[in-house]
């Protein structure tokens, strides 16, 4: 059985935790070698914002301003996150052993043909340069200190926090999120990923008040997001390399175009995996069942009402 947690308690419990996560992620931002710092920071920011939204009644009224500001700060980090993802995917394309510097490889080296090694090296250098430039432009002292300030926002939980049970709030909030995440109009649009992500953050937030089964739901959503995230990144990489293939050095363009083809194939593989996984959930009525499993009391009462 889930714990009986009041909304006020839940706000206090989770706010400290999520604020800490954002604080630590923000502290890692200046570390250039830490490619996960920016995505972690944006993730922590989203989780904190979800908390502020879902538990708005438990927070002091002036919390709205910081929420908007945190959203803006997180958006400022987005180009840097994209640049980091590009480097990661290019490294993935390069495989465990990248092409050596300086010389062209002959056909005896499996996997690399023509000037592909040079072209990949040139792409990787461009991606790193772009990331470094963005890092310098975006990661100002101001941005980091503002993120830290947002993370220290824990003091705004109302002292007279509501005694309403957290599960009551979850009953209002989660069905909306489940409904949004299950909408299939254009399944692989970025909005679907964001909707599934918001549902995940909502479930994590109300976790102490939910039935144990919600952990299974969280695991499923994490798995789906693990497929939708790379899909978006591969799509962006294809466009980026395609631009390079049009504007890069003429001698490298044929090889760059082959790399675009290779990245497109990776995108298709990612898309296929994501589509299969989402179709499994969409066609099997999973979203509805999952929503019921996470909110057991509601399920019991509705059964009672129906009989």
């Amino acid at each position: 059985m889930p714990e009986r947690v009041s909304a006020g308690e839940l706000a206090r419990l989770t706010l400290a935790d999520r604020s800490d996560q954002l604080r630590w992620a923000a502290a890692r931002l200046p570390l250039a070698a830490d490619l996960e710092a920016v995505p972690d920071c944006r993730m922590a920011s989203r989780r904190l914002r979800e908390l502020w939204m879902a538990l708005a009644d438990q927070l002091e009224p002036h919390s709205r301003g910081p929420r908007r500001r945190l959203r803006q700060l997180s958006a400022e980090l987005r180009p840097l996150e994209r640049a980091g993802a590009r480097i990661r995917l290019l490294m993935e394309l390069l495989g465990p052993v990248g092409p050596p510097g300086g010389t062209l490889q002959g056909p005896s080296t499996p996997g690399w043909r023509g000037r592909e090694p040079e072209a990949l090296r040139s792409l990787l250098e461009s991606a790193r340069l772009e990331e470094a430039t963005l890092r310098e432009q975006i990661l100002s002292r101001r941005l980091i200190s503002e993120l830290e300030a947002a993370a220290n926002f824990g003091a705004v939980v109302r002292r007279d926090g509501s005694a309403t049970e957290a599960v009551q709030l979850a009953r209002v909030r989660l069905p909306v999120l489940f409904e949004a995440a299950s909408r299939t109009g254009r399944p692989l649009e970025p909005s679907r990923r964001r909707r599934v992500q918001r549902l995940l953050h909502g479930l994590e937030l109300f976790s102490p008040a939910l039935a144990r089964e919600h952990q299974v739901v969280i695991a499923e959503l994490t798995s789906v997001l693990g497929l939708l995230g790379p899909l978006r990144e591969w799509r962006e990489l294809v466009e980026w390399v395609d631009r390079a293939a049009k504007q890069g050095p003429a001698d490298l363009r044929p090889a760059l175009r082959r790399i675009v083809v290779r990245a497109e194939l990776e995108t298709e593989a990612a898309q296929e995996s994501a589509e299969i996984e989402l179709a499994r959930l969409d066609q099997g009525g999973w979203w509805r069942t999952a929503a019921q499993a996470c909110l057991p009391e509601r399920r019991r009462s509705s059964r009672a009402g129906g009989s």
Partner: peptide, 9 residues
């Protein structure tokens, strides 16, 4: 031709 010239160096 562009692809062949690159692949055949």
């Amino acid at each position: 031709l562009a692809q062949l010239m690159d692949l055949l160096q």
